[in-house]
Design a protein around this nucleic acid. Sequence first.
DNA 1: TATAAATAGGATAAAATTATCCGAAATAAA
DNA 2: TTTATTTCGGATAATTTTATCCTATTTATA
Lengths: 144, 144
Amino acid sequence: MFSKACEYGIKAAIFIAINSKEGKLVSPKEISEEIDSPQAFTAKILQELVRHKIVSSVKGAYGGFEIDKIRIDSIKLSQIVKAIDGDKIYIGCGLGLETCNENHPCPVHDKFKTIRDELKYMLEHTSLQELALSIKAGNSFFKV
Amino acid sequence: MFSKACEYGIKAAIFIAINSKEGKLVSPKEISEEIDSPQAFTAKILQELVRHKIVSSVKGAYGGFEIDKIRIDSIKLSQIVKAIDGDKIYIGCGLGLETCNENHPCPVHDKFKTIRDELKYMLEHTSLQELALSIKAGNSFFKV
DNA sequence: TATAAATAGGATAAAATTATCCGAAATAAA
DNA sequence: TTTATTTCGGATAATTTTATCCTATTTATA
Ligand code: FES
Ligand code: FES
């Protein structure tokens, strides 16, 4: 469904959000240990999230990554997915046609579009805030 | 969402179904031209579909691929997806945890599972028959 | 100002997916 | 039985994704 990079990106963003709520910066090392991902690869993904202004970085000694507290509630999963995997997943054709087009649909268009739109809606209405809370409350987990 | 291989497999199966309804065998060449896919790669995928007994092959001169007419209505998309991409898409975790587990869920589990189950239901209830009919009726297309 | 710690980013490698090529095996028809 | 045609299957190549490594740059503190 999502690329590995995107999975790591989502988990990383949640972990950063949790720490930012407590005013704590986190490093790629801490992040990758917590979310069970390769460190250097995770660092690349963090750079991408910074470029897309989803997280911000503090360079130099005592630096790290954080997310503006005030924005944690307004950042939606859709932004992270779009930043890393692009929007193929919500607007692309299920059978790989160049574009998904109502007027020239592929055989699964009607059925696929329904699901895809629900996925899009879900991603657009799921905030980092609620995911961070579920982790903090011990109701969900980053790794086995 | 699906791999390229799976997209080609689905389209190929639909095209074979259409021709089998008319008692016609089709070759990888005809298939790949019709569904706009690389021929040799498509041939590999056809072999996989044969191994999974979704389509049957007639070897040698005047051979080709076909689907038992009587089974076209009972073959569901889920069988093709499972044969080529496995079942990760219906039972896998959205954030890549080893297994999706109610008792040890990832942060997106509840929201993701809903969508995933709907996708599963859709694939399990969409038959080759109905997709073949929509193509035949000119209501859908394999390529731009 | 010097030092140490941290992100940024380029180069490279490994693995998976996608794609091509070619010969072997099967088989219908001549 | 020979020939032509067609699937099967192994080997290989190209591309994309995933992952690692190393150096440059930034910056807080001593
Ligand atoms: S055209 Fe294929 S999903 Fe819309
Ligand atoms: S545990 Fe992640 S989707 Fe169920």
